Every structure is written in C-alpha cells, then in structure tokens.
Computed example of a mutant assay.
Amino acid sequence: MSDTLIRRIDALLPQTQCTRCGYDACLPYAQAIALEGEAINRCPPGGQEGVQALAELLERDPLPLDPACGEFTGPSRAVIIEEHCIGCTLCIQACPVDAIVGANKLMHTVLADRCTGCELCVPPCPVDCISLVPTDDWNSAQAEQARQDTEQRRDRLLGRHKESSDLAARTLANKPVLATNADQADKREASIASALARARARRASKTASGTTP
C-alpha cells in the first residue's frame, strides 16, 4: 500500500528535482510525505495547485506554500552564455537530469527539452554564465521524461561508484602510490583558476576592441 501511495504522490510532483523541498529529489520527498507525514506544501515549482492536488489525494488541509522553501515563479529553463563558458564541467555534475552536455575545457550547452529549470547548475558556475529564462508550462510528458532521466542518472552514478569501489579494492591489494584527495582538489582548483584567467583575458580583449555585447 505504501509503495502505491508513494507512486501516486510522486506522480503529482513536478519532477523538477530542484531540492527546494529539502530532499534530494522529488521521489524522496514523496516518500517522506507518505511514510513520515512530511508537510505537503514544500514544493515551490508545484505551486498552490500542486499543494491542492496533494491535499485532495491525502485528505489533508491545503496549506499555503511554505515560504522557507521559496516562491512559485513558473516554469523556466537554464541557458548558458556559450562564449563565456570555460568548460569546467561543474554545471554538468550538478544537473540532476543530465540536461547539460559538453566536455572539459570545451563549451557546454543545455538541452532545452530536458532542462527542468531546477537552478542547481547556477551556483557552481565560476563565471556566472548560466541564467534562467521563462518557458512554456511544464507538462506531464516533460515531468515523466525528467523522472526517467533522474532514475537513469542515479543508476549510472551508483554503477560508477561500484566500479570505483571495486577498482579501489584491487588497487589497494597491489599497494600502489595513490594521489590524495587533497592533491586532486588542488589540481582541479588550479585548472579552474587557469580557465578563469583565460576567460577574463578574453572578455578584456573584447571590451578593448569594442565587441562585447
């Protein structure tokens, strides 16, 4: 019964996977509502209409949206200002639905039909080249696609974690010299700093030549 209820609750959530509710994705929030009695008014992308739908399903009072979780602003999608992108891949890592494509030190772009407008890619961007723009209403087909994309990404990351764990076990058995996490972090920080310097130089050059938009 609980699994059926979780699925029904999850089906009413917008599947933006934005984490504003305080949970990692829409499904964990649905599970908390069904199993732990979590409040039904913690989903800003769903708006008051979403709260009402959950209230009717669960026979609860349709409380106003919790302001601590944010306000309803309508559907949106991310757009990358491609000429400013330094290819750091931080936005790709942050996207919960794999809607951003690109490679290290190469320009990234957003797959508009896959983007949920969750905004999770915005804070990690070191050059502030990502913005959110209003889009058409978020429909059930897009929500279902986002649900599938989220599940596929989760399964891929879990598989990668298992592969990494297996490799680590084999590696430790052979006792090689391993790079520390600190070393890896330092190298990544240096790489991003170098990319930032190149981006600033590129912008300065455009400004000096009068070609900056």
Rank of each mutant, 00 (worst) to 15 (best):
E71H: 13
I6Q: 05
D149H: 13
T135D: 09
Q148C: 02
T207N: 11
Q48K: 09
D186T: 13
A25T: 07
A53F: 02
K175C: 09
C69Q: 10
A201H: 08
C69V: 08
M1A: 14
R170Y: 11
G46F: 03
C18A: 11
Q17H: 12
S164A: 15
G37L: 07
L35C: 08
D136W: 04
P44A: 06
Q152K: 15
G117Q: 06
A143H: 05
C118F: 07
H161C: 12
G37K: 07
V97G: 04
G22R: 00
R203S: 02
T4A: 15
T135M: 12
S165L: 12
A197C: 04
A143D: 06
A99P: 01
Y23M: 04
Q48E: 13
I40A: 02
P64R: 08
C118E: 01
A182P: 00
A25V: 03
G47W: 02
A103T: 12
I192M: 05
P45H: 06
S140Q: 15
A143Y: 05
L35A: 02
G47S: 09
A204S: 12
P64E: 08
K175M: 11
A141S: 12
P62G: 03
L167F: 15
V101K: 15
E151Q: 11
D166G: 00
L90G: 01
R170H: 12
A25M: 05
T171P: 00
G50N: 01
P28L: 02
Q48R: 09
A168D: 08
L132C: 06
C95S: 03
N139T: 07
P124H: 10
G70M: 05
I130W: 03
A30L: 03
I130Y: 03
T89I: 11
F72V: 04
S131G: 06
L106D: 06
K162L: 10
L178C: 07
I100E: 02
L172V: 09
P44E: 03
L27C: 03
E38D: 10
I81Y: 05
D136E: 13
Q48V: 07
T212L: 15
N174H: 06
E151N: 04
K175Y: 09
G87W: 03
K206F: 11
S194F: 10
L196K: 14
Q31H: 10
V110C: 07
V110H: 04
D186L: 14
L132T: 05
P14T: 10
G70T: 04
C21N: 05
P64S: 08
R154S: 06
R203D: 03
N174S: 10
L65H: 07
C95H: 03
A39L: 11
P123T: 08
N139L: 08
T16H: 06
D149Q: 14
K175D: 13
A193R: 08
P67S: 10
T116I: 05
A173Y: 13
L27V: 11
T19Q: 14
Q184E: 00
S76Q: 15
T135K: 12
P75D: 02
V177E: 14
D10W: 12
Q31V: 11
K105V: 00
T212R: 15
E189I: 06
S165Y: 10
I81S: 06
E56H: 05
A34S: 05
S76T: 13
I86T: 03
Q93Y: 04
R20C: 10
P213D: 11
P123M: 09
N104L: 11
G102K: 04
